[in-house]
Nucleic acid binder design. Structure first.
Length: 314
DNA sequence: ATAATAGTCCGCCAGG
DNA sequence: GGCCTGGCGGACTATT
């Protein structure tokens, strides 16, 4: 079973630690083994006035398939050299290394972020970039997947990152099941802006959610932005503007994302030929599916299916 | 793989 | 004036 170890540095952001615990900490689901560790076993203070007790220290990293460093404060505190060494060793061994929120500062010290794209809490992005000029900091996204190194933005974006990892490891269905269990929206894309202009539903209307739901039932047919605008009862210009305010993407980009997600589900759950998957997901041609699929997942539909149908069980 | 076509996005602006 | 709306042009993107 894939072993996820979350590292709690002193003055850890407790929420950041809880997120992977909730996502990965259910061995009964048969997907992950989870453990939290500290620099050494014992008490770890949090940023919010209480302390945690971890059973193990850095030695736990030696057994991890994925290491996630939770946020901590103040970020100016460099991580102990033993931490840097343990993280580097885990990475060199082939483990996937990630951070949540300001955990990226610890990763940056290991040099693992040098020359890569990375993100952190928006309020700290500038500082990260200043202090570690070799890191290409992008504060506009929820998380960044550089394959063996992953980073996520502030606090709750850790949920998005963790679900993304589940999606990578076990597919859309598994990630959706976990999202359901922890009662969050199943998918916010990594590219989604950290500043959603209207994060809370406006009090008067439910916004465009009904239109999105409507569109989801029509993914298999050609759907134009104009048609969605009509459904919502707005002119196209206003529709696009409101859509962007709610979702931080454009209608077409959202639609393409949903189509790829649906294609992934079909690839996982059926043996339909790629042509048919493309058709049912609303892509006119398999070529079109392949190009968007590649952009979203960095693989091909067939390779994706092989990963999730070959070995993965129910 | 490329080019032609159709569709989308967004700044700007006027109108309610 | 401040706000939302939607039409338009031209850049950009998707599709075939």
């Amino acid at each position: 079973m894939h072993r996820v170890v979350a590292l709690a540095l002193p003055h850890v952001v407790a929420f950041d630690l809880s997120v992977p615990a909730q996502v990965f900490g259910r061995p009964d689901e048969g997907l992950y083994a989870f453990e939290a560790c500290g620099v050494r076993a014992g008490r770890v203070p949090t940023t919010t006035g209480f302390s945690l007790h971890v059973e193990r220290g850095l030695e736990a990293l030696a057994e991890a398939d994925t290491v996630l460093v939770a946020g901590f404060a103040p970020v100016s505190t460099p991580p102990p050299t033993a931490v840097v060494a343990a993280l580097r060793a885990a990475h060199a061994r082939g483990a996937r290394i990630g951070s949540i929120c300001t955990g990226a500062f610890a990763l940056a010290h290991t040099g693992l972020l040098d020359g890569r794209r990375a993100t952190t809490h928006w309020a700290y992005a500038e500082r990260l970039a200043e202090r570690h000029p070799a890191v290409e900091v992008d504060a506009r996204v929820l998380y960044i997947d550089e394959d063996d190194v992953v980073t996520s933005a502030g606090v709750a974006a850790g949920i998005d990152l963790c679900l993304h990892l589940v999606r990578r490891d076990h597919g859309v269905e598994a990630a959706n099941a976990i999202a359901r269990r922890i009662v969050v929206a199943p998918h916010r894309d990594g590219g989604q802006a950290q500043f959603v202009e209207a994060p809370l539903p406006s009090p008067d209307a439910r916004g465009l959610a009904p239109t999105r739901a409507w569109a989801l039932t029509r993914l298999h047919e050609p759907l134009t932005v104009a048609a969605m605008a009509r459904h919502a009862g707005f002119g196209e210009r206003t529709f696009a503007r409101r859509f962007r305010a709610e979702t931080a993407t454009t209608p077409l980009q959202w639609l393409l994302r949903q189509r790829v997600l649906h294609a992934r589900r079909l690839l996982e759950a059926t043996d339909l030929p790629v042509e048919d998957v493309a058709g049912q997901a609303g892509f006119g041609t398999a070529t079109s599916l392949r190009s968007h699929f590649r952009r979203a997942t960095a693989t091909t539909p067939l390779a994706y299916r092989r990963t999730f149908r070959g070995s993965a069980a129910a």
